[in-house]
Amino acid sequence: MLVVLLVSTLACLLVWLYLRWTKVKTYWAARNVPHEPPHPIWGSLTFMLQKNAGIWMKEMYSRFSSPYVGIWLFWRPALIVNCPEIGKRILVKDSELFRDRFLRSGRNDPIGGLNIFTINDPLWSSIRRRLTPVFTSSKLRSLHGLLSTKTAQLVERIRNDVKAGETVNLRMTYSDFTTDVIGIASFGVDSDATSKGESHMRTVTKDFMKFSVWRGMAWASIFFFPELVDIFGFTLFPKRATDYFRKVFHSIAKQRSVEGSNKKDLMDALLKIQQEAKETGEEEYLWEALGHQ
């Protein structure tokens, strides 16, 4: 009797899996959306741990001439948009229909879990509204001098490397440049990574570029299967980077609380959000929201 019950249960499970898989693999075909046949387990994610997700995405863009491509995140249908006009509608005109993000970090990762790239509404709308003044046209124009200075350093570095007959690693060179620009524009922290290729902040940001099986699993889960993030304790950023930016934030916050600031940069906006959250009791709500995302 027990054997019959087990066999019947197994047969029902296999039938359910077959019917479910049939529905999953025909999802985009039924909607006349261009796609490649999915893997029965990984869906379209067979590239994982083999190549960078950005490279895979670029290959998908060039492989199809359609404005969109159907993919599967394991058995979950998703859409790659390959048309600026559709992208604009999603991000601007029809943004109210696309507010929530699929990717997210864990409840034990406040830096990765409570930022504008990973939070959902209503927190997303609240934080976006508060950060908008940092990215006005006048504010971006005020960064022109900084960009000009760093760009001149970038050109000089490449010119010197070429004169010395050295191979120019453009990826690392532009990463140095980007680190300097973001550091000073967002946090008021200047460094010489563009000129010298090294700085304390650059040492930390290099951790972002290091690959390991664990980091690969973490990023794959955060972007493609966020349900696994809390199970394995994955975080968006490496621990050393998180500790460093915490230290920088608290140091600058203490300095500006004493000296004051009129920079109106991202750091000022973050300090203002922090102060308002404490005054309105929203700080506790942020932690509660992180636990329920």
Rank of each mutant, 00 (worst) to 15 (best):
F208K: 04
L170F: 14
T178G: 05
V168H: 05
V155Y: 10
R159F: 10
S175W: 07
K210R: 14
M201Q: 03
R202Q: 06
V168Q: 06
T194C: 04
M172S: 15
I182W: 04
G188A: 04
A193G: 03
E166V: 10
R159Q: 13
V168S: 05
V189Q: 05
M201G: 02
T179Y: 00
F208E: 13
F177R: 00
D176C: 13
T178C: 06
S186M: 10
I158R: 00
M172W: 14
E156Y: 06
H200C: 15
F177V: 06
L170Q: 08
E166C: 10
N169Q: 11
E198G: 02
D176G: 07
E198R: 01
F177P: 00
E156A: 08
V204K: 10
F187G: 02
E156R: 02
G165L: 04
E166P: 03
G188S: 04
S186N: 09
I182S: 01
E156M: 06
M209R: 12
V155A: 10
V155H: 14
Y174R: 09
K196P: 02
D180E: 11
D192E: 14
G165K: 06
S191W: 02
V168M: 07
M172E: 07
G183R: 00
S199Y: 01
G183F: 01
K196Y: 09
V155E: 02
R202S: 04
N169W: 11
D176N: 14
R171Y: 11
M201Y: 03
N169S: 08
K210H: 14
I182K: 04
I184D: 09
G188K: 00
V168N: 05
Y174K: 10
V155Q: 09
I158E: 14
S191N: 05
V204H: 08
Y174E: 07
I158S: 02
H200S: 12
Y174W: 15
F187W: 09
N169D: 03
M201A: 06
T179K: 01
D161M: 14
Y174P: 03
A164K: 05
R157F: 10
V181D: 05
V162S: 08
I182A: 04
L170E: 01
